[in-house]
Each structure stands twice: as C-alpha cells, then as structure tokens.
Design a protein around this nucleic acid. Structure first.
Lengths: 198, 198
DNA sequence: CGGATCGTTGATCAACTTCAACGGTCGTGG
DNA sequence: CCACGACCGTTGAAGTTGATCAACGATCCG
C-alpha cells in the first residue's frame, strides 16, 4: 500500500535528517534502498541458523530479539519500537548464522535494508559510510551502558532504571519479555511491580 | 624511546592490514596519527568526570575499565591486552563525561588516537571512515554476545565460557577484576576455581 | 623485613528462582 | 457472537545460587 510506505519512509527520512546532513538527492537514494514489510503480531522475521539478511527500521509497532537458553526458555536480548533498529546485528555484520529470533510483539511495519545493498551504498558514498559508522557507534555505546547496569544493579534497581528511562515502554512491552530483558523471571518482575518483594 | 615506538607501531600496522586494504601512503598517514604512551602498573588513563579524549590501542601489557558501584566497589566492565582497544567508548563517541576508570593492570604501552585527529582522518578519506565503522561494528557485536552470556548463563558457566574463549587471559588477569567482569564476587570465583562450590 | 594487596575458606544470609495453582483476558473457530 | 482454549500475569511456599562477613595465608614490592 503506497500511502503506508510513504508514511513509513517519512519517518525514516526524519530519522536520518536528525543524524547527519545529506543532500536531497542522497537522502532519496538512501531511502529508496529500503523495502517495506508489514508484520502481524507474533510474526517472525529471523530464526537462529539463518543469516540475517536485513537490518530493520521500525516505522510502527514493536519487535523483540530473543534467544532460547538450554532449558528452552526465551530470553529477550533487545527491543525495538518506532524509530529504533533491530536485527541479529552480529549475524548481519559477520554473515554468520544468527543465534536470535526476531519477532513482532505488535502488528508492525518495518523498513528493511539488505546487506548487499547497504554494502553498495557505503562503497558509493562517503556520507553513507558515515551514517552507518554512527549507527554502529551508538549501538556499541548503548550496549556498554546496558552491561554496566546489568553488572552493577539489583533486579529492582534495573527495573526502576528502565521505568525511568522508558516510561511508556515499561507498560507496553509484554511483561514476560521485559522480565528476561532485565535479567529476571516474570514472577519476580510481577512481585517487584506489586511491591510484594519482601 | 624510538625503538619502542617502532615496535608498537608495527603491531598496529599489522592490526590494520589484517582488517582492510590501504595503500602504503594511507597506512603511514593513519599510523602517524597515533602517539605512544608508556604506562606503569596501576597507572590511570581516565577517570569518571573527564571526557575520554583518546582511544587506546594496546601494543603490550594489559588494561581494564571499571566503574565504582554505590558501595564503592569497583566493577570491571572491559579488559584489553595486546592487540585490543580500550577507552570509555561512550564518552569518547558522545563527548560526555566518562563514567569509567581506565587503568593498567600491568606495565603497558598504548598507542593513542585523539578524538579531533580521528575526526579529521575520517573526513579526509573514505577508507579511514570504513575502518572506524568496522571497529564500531565489531565492538557492538562483541558486546551483544556478552549481554547474551550475562543473561542466559550461571556464574560457573560464564567462567567456563571465558576460560574456553580466552585460556591465557583467565590466568593472567587479576582475579578480583575477572570476578566482577563475569558478574560475581572474588570470593565466589575463588570457590568455582577450587571446586568448592557446593 | 614489613606492610599492603590479593586470594582462600567457612558460616551465615539475602536475592532471586522454581514450582504449582489460579484468575483474567484475548482471539479464534464453530 | 459465543465458548473455549491458550496465553499471560499473580501469588505463595520452598529451594538454590551467589553475596556478605570475617579471619587467615600467601605473595609481592618497596
């Protein structure tokens, strides 16, 4: 649906414009490389074993990435809602098989950029290379902050911190997924939320 | 000492050559941007509150990055030995004050690249931009793997995994530092190592 | 040689998990 | 449009992992 795609692409245009200055021609060339994909809740974009062929910009809705631990429980590693990116980044970058699932937890619309196209863009234009460099830097810095939180804070502190930083998300995300993202069980998160922890 | 610097720079030259193909001229231009710094054990390169002005390539020795938690205990976030990089990456990239200490745990030699110089290099040459993009990508992918380990494994499994991946490091690092890196206390790591855990 | 630093060990304790049972809600097929 | 099952969150009891505390031993370095 074209109206749909226009709407999504406008969001992505805004996203890029807020990060770096591109000429109108460059901006449109970059945007033209993305393909829209519409997802139903529970729809899976990527499974372990597959190589992540695309990176996904979330135009609307929400997705999460998770792994299965040895007991078969899923452990959420990453969330993405509007204006965020998601993929098995390690797989996308190294071309190794993914270890994560990527799944929509709401009906969603994503804009996908595939690896080969991204490579060509980066090669063709210094400014594009800069954009992806900045995205990787932001991602690395973000993850490092997460590691610090995970190592230094208690379960309650991690939840409080998340609530403070993402007030709207803390209600919007499935609770079982948020719990494992924060490194605890769904039962314990439920107790924290209801002040039932000793 | 020039002989020293030659030796360090050779290591870094190797490092870059293994990653991307540069012309000899480009390689030397890049290497010339680094300054050697000699560190004694316990010497501190960066403290919280300062902006990280440089990224450090470890030519010899070993460093770690750590934060102080609310009880004043240090928690190791990152290690770097020969051929690795270290800094408060978040601070370096965002120009915000650091939250971490960066400290040598052995006598070390690092090659430092300061932020402004790096910016100029990246602007001046598409190939340099590519190098730093690749470094950021590797860093992001690495950290994501660490988050997965932290969330899905028990203390003993995390230690076993570390031992397997970095057999030499698991003996070389100060044990109290390795313990917090793996998200446990030094006492508990000691018990794991000596099979004293229940 | 002497003090500081680092690792070790055991006893106790706290944080968090596991397990099991239940209630509410949502969406899907009849 | 209703009914039923699946899914999700909640609660409490019991269990486990790993932290804390304290004391001691070893080692390193000045």
């Amino acid at each position: 649906m074209t109206a749909n795609r226009d709407h999504s692409v406008n969001a992505l245009r805004q996203h890029f414009q807020s990060k770096i200055s591109l000429t109108p021609t460059e901006t449109e060339e970059l945007l033209a490389a993305f393909r829209e994909k519409i997802l139903k809740k529970k729809q899976i974009l990527l499974k372990p074993g597959q190589v992540a062929e695309v990176r996904n910009y979330v135009a609307s809705g929400g997705l999460r990435a998770y792994v299965l631990d040895k007991d078969g429980n899923d452990q959420t590693i990453q969330f993405a809602v509007e204006d965020w990116w998601i993929s098995d980044y390690n797989s996308y970058v190294t071309r190794q098989p993914a270890t994560m699932f990527v799944e929509a937890f709401e009906d969603s619309i994503v804009l996908q950029l595939d690896y080969e196209t991204e490579m060509k863009l980066k090669k063709s234009n210094h400014a594009f290379e800069t954009i992806f460099r900045m995205m990787a830097e932001r991602s690395a810095a973000f993850q490092q902050r997460r590691i610090i939180l995970a190592i230094t804070q208690s379960a309650q502190e991690r939840y409080a911190e998340f609530q403070k930083r993402y007030p709207s998300l803390s209600h919007r995300l499935p609770q079982y997924a948020l719990a494992t993202y924060l490194g605890m069980t769904k039962e314990f998160l439920s107790k924290i939320r209801n002040n039932r922890v000793k």
